[in-house]
Amino acid sequence: MSSDLSQGPTEADSSTPDSAAAGVTAPLSGTLRAKPTAGWALMGSELSVLFRRRRTWVMLIALAAIPILIAVAVRISSAGSTPGRGPAFLSQITNNGLFVGLVALIICIPLFLPLTIGVVAGDTIAGEASSGTLRYLLVAPVGRGRLLLVKFVAAVAFVIAGTLVIVIAGALIGAALFPVGPVTLLSGDTVSLGEAGVRGLLIAAYVIVSLLGLTAIGLFISTLTDIPVGAMAATVVISIIAQVLDSLPQLDWLHPWLFSHYWLNFADLLRQPIDWSSFGSNALLQLAYVAVFGALAYGRFSTKDVLS
């Protein structure tokens, strides 16, 4: 360590007696700014840390692998595929490669996407706590509310990345292995390739919105523990329980309130004209979940003793 005093550029004006007499003191910290910055630096740092982690890339690659697996499997066995079995639209793939992304999304929504979201959202606060960085972020100082917000936005960024990876990987592999052309919608109308792309992005947006509630739940659970794996597992389990409850007809009064209830209801986006009602009710429900669990997370985290 060199003991020369190369600290900040400006310190000459520090703590002068006259400013103390004026009732306010000049702290020594010459590099401190007059006003706090908006805090985009932390957002950028958070995203770069998230997307520089090998774990994030492994999950994104795994998500990309699913449409590829589907396309290859269908391609190899295309002769013997039985219509009516497997997920919706599976039999359409051989006619139009664009459906690969759609089928992959349908397969990923119940388990794979919630799994990766559980990992990212469950890690938000608990991961910082377990690596010992939470206390240093807090004394930096980051502000607890701001940290939660930044963490939530970063988790949403991962949801967006994960969903887009599936759709884009699906479109690419579909185009490579199958014919691609105008798409026949559920309403019977046929739309051009460009219009079909827009519909694909709309469905991706629907899926992203669908997963916001679960992301907020994961964030909240992450504030409850210092053990990230626990928070991840709990988030995934909750997503599974919600889907199980959603499948029990005895509980149909509960179904509209489950965050997973509208997860697969994007068929309306494949009609001409588009029926936005399910998009709207889904967005409203997810917003409510984000509000409730965001508030719970803030309530918990803002008063929590950080002892990690």
Binding site: R33, P36, A41, L42, T133, L137, P141, G143
Partner: peptide
């Protein structure tokens, strides 16, 4: 760099040097 970016009261232009 990450911990410093969490501090809203410092100037980002001097971050690398600090």
């Amino acid at each position: 760099l990450r911990l410093d970016s969490a501090d809203r009261f410092v100037t980002s232009s001097t971050r690398r040097k600090r």
